[in-house]
């Protein structure tokens, strides 16, 4: 009997915790259906004059549909950045696992130290370097730094070490080139790591705020995060923006919530590998 009541007690405790984690999202769903007056004056946790479609229409129509542009920008930054970062990290990790050269461990440690570096310490000087190169306030200013994933190199190296040497040698004996071997054999074996790196990097770029904030001044280049906060800054003068910020936030979190089920599964492969080796 005792274990049964313990089971219910923990379940109730976890339900309370789940309410804590889900409450802001529930609030967001409710708030996204309200007009600007009700957003401030109605009960915060219940619906009042729901008008989600009107709000969505306003959101995508405002300022010639700039919101759609921001979605597109976020997808470009995160998609291209994560894909590029994964490929580049996979190449580097593969080389580090399969070739012994002088200074290999030293280089590896410097790269790992890169994980520990505060990104904000890099952001300000990077802006000046980008300005000198004439790249500030362009797509490149956000894309290029996003191609670097020290964690990706680390994870790729761990997985590339499991690619059997005799398979590589056999392929070489058959006359396959190194690039071909990498693309057809190594990448296949490393694929669980590649998925993890891609997802980590995608979320990292999608959620990044400091880099675009420092680099971009032209609002048509903004990703979603920067666009929504810029609207929030103008909400004093244009009250409808208050509603649009809420609806815009709501739309922007939908894909990530849908994805997070898949994310959890792939996380595990990468994380265990990462922490077990420490």
């Amino acid at each position: 009997m005792r274990t049964v009541s313990l089971r219910w007690l923990t379940t109730v405790l976890l339900l309370v915790l789940a309410a804590y984690f889900l409450l802001p999202l529930y609030w967001l769903i409710v708030a996204a259906t309200k007009n600007t007056g009700d957003l401030i004056n109605s009960s915060p946790l219940w619906f009042a004059n729901p008008q989600l479609w009107t709000n969505l229409g306003d959101l995508f129509a405002f300022s010639d549909g700039i919101y759609l542009r921001w979605i597109l920008n976020s997808v470009i930054y995160s998609g291209l950045g994560a894909a590029g970062a994964t490929l580049i990290a996979a190449c580097a990790g593969y080389a580090m696992a399969k070739c012994e050269f002088r200074g290999r461990e030293a280089l590896f440690n410097v790269i790992l130290a890169g994980v520990l570096l505060p990104t904000t310490a890099i952001g300000l000087p990077l802006f000046l370097l980008m300005s000198d190169a004439g790249l500030a306030n362009t797509y490149w200013a956000v894309l290029l730094p996003s191609l670097v994933s020290p964690f990706g190199v680390y994870l790729s190296r761990v997985y590339a070490a499991t690619v059997p040497d005799d398979v590589l040698d056999a392929a070489r004996a058959d006359g396959a080139g190194e690039w071909r071997i990498f693309l057809t054999i190594a990448l296949k074996i490393m694929s669980p790591a590649l998925v993890t790196i891609f997802l980590f990097q995608f979320i990292g770029i999608w959620n990044n705020y400091f880099l675009p904030l420092v680099m971009l001044s032209d609002s048509s280049l903004y990703p979603l995060t920067l666009g929504l906060t810029s609207w929030q800054g103008f909400a004093d003068r244009e009250p409808i923006l208050q509603t649009l910020v809420v609806v815009g936030s709501f739309v922007s979190v939908i894909p990530l919530i849908v994805l997070s089920g898949a994310l959890q599964r792939f996380w595990r492969a990468g994380l265990t590998e990462g922490s077990v080796r420490e």
Partner: peptide
Amino acid sequence: RFFRTSFFLPYGIPGVIASIMWGFL
């Protein structure tokens, strides 16, 4: 499984969006 997913869910939300939501709350 439900609990694990709901605890993990906020990780996918950008810090600035979370701050906008909590700001209202």
